[in-house]
């Protein structure tokens, strides 16, 4: 599971108010290089919940990776940003797409319900008594 996915998910179990953001507890994670696509990143940026993404990088022990405020569109479209190590675009790319959570848990902030991540797959399925009416 990548942090982009973490940014999209919530607990929808009975009892959750917003069920979001899920606390990320990573037991095992790795980094895999992926080709950056500036066009994709610029499109996805406005859809992100930035504070939740920053919190997720902190949970992984990477407090330096992302700034507190999201990058601007101009920063992302800057010439050579995709190639330049440490550019705003590369950091965003790394955070969203290159970090893979292999084993861990997503915890609902309202109910403490744990959603396990195993072999990279978050299990968001509810038990039958958790489904809302």
């Amino acid at each position: 599971m990548r942090l982009l996915t973490h940014n999209m998910l919530a607990s929808n179990a009975r009892g959750a108010v917003t069920g979001y953001p899920l606390k990320l507890q990573a037991v095992k994670w790795s980094t895999k290089e992926v080709e950056p696509n500036p066009y994709f990143l610029r499109g996805i940026l406005p859809k992100l919940d930035w504070p939740a993404l920053v919190a997720a990088t902190h949970a992984l022990g990477l407090p330096e990776l992302l700034p507190e405020a999201p990058p601007t569109d101009a920063e992302l479209s800057a010439e050579g940003a995709a190639e330049e190590e440490g550019s705003a675009l590369r950091c965003l790319h790394r955070a969203l797409l290159e970090i893979h959570i292999e084993e861990g848990t997503l915890v609902c902030p309202d109910t403490e319900r744990c959603f396990p991540i195993s072999r990279g797959v978050p299990n968001m399925l509810l038990h039958e008594d958790e489904v809302r009416n």
């Binding site: 940014n7 919530a10 607990s11 929808n12 917003t18 979001y20 919940d49 978050p122 968001m124 509810l126």
Partner: peptide, 11 residues
């Protein structure tokens, strides 16, 4: 993801 499309897990 493992998820049920009847109860989707989107924030």
């Amino acid at each position: 993801l493992r998820a049920d499309n009847n109860v989707p897990p989107w924030r």
